[in-house]
Computed example of a mutant assay.
Amino acid sequence: MSVGLGIFLFVVGAVLVWALNVSVTWIDLDLVGYILMSAGALIFVIGLVFMFRRRKSISTVRTIADPESSQQVTRKDTSIDDR
């Protein structure tokens, strides 16, 4: 979601800077556009960092006794946590 929000803010800022030719006395729309573009780029980068950092591997080792031969059996499972 943050990647999409970053792209949206960047596009809105770019429209304010380069596509809109409206002069308002109480606010500088070019400055607001540049602020939105920089905030969008920052949110985009932070979203990518969190998205790639979210994955981690989990290893589980289980030891059970085989009922027929009374030997210990060890099994190792590796999975990826996608929370």
Rank of each mutant, 00 (worst) to 15 (best):
M1P: 05
S2V: 05
V3I: 15
L5A: 09
I7Q: 13
F8V: 10
F8W: 10
F10N: 11
V12K: 08
G13W: 14
A14T: 09
A14D: 11
A14P: 00
W18A: 08
A19Q: 07
N21V: 01
T25V: 01
T25H: 04
D30W: 08
V32L: 15
G33D: 02
Y34Q: 02
Y34R: 09
I35K: 07
L36E: 00
A39I: 14
A39M: 14
G40V: 04
I43M: 09
I43Y: 08
F44T: 09
F44Q: 09
I46P: 00
L48Y: 06
L48M: 11
V49L: 13
V49I: 14
F50P: 00
F50W: 09
M51R: 15
F52K: 15
R53M: 04
R54M: 08
S57C: 02
S57E: 12
S59M: 11
V61R: 15
V61N: 12
V61G: 06
V61K: 15
I64E: 14
I64T: 13
A65K: 12
D66I: 01
D66R: 01
E68S: 02
E68C: 01
V73L: 10
V73Q: 07
T74D: 01
T74N: 00
T74K: 13
K76F: 03
K76N: 04
S79F: 08
D81L: 10
R83V: 03
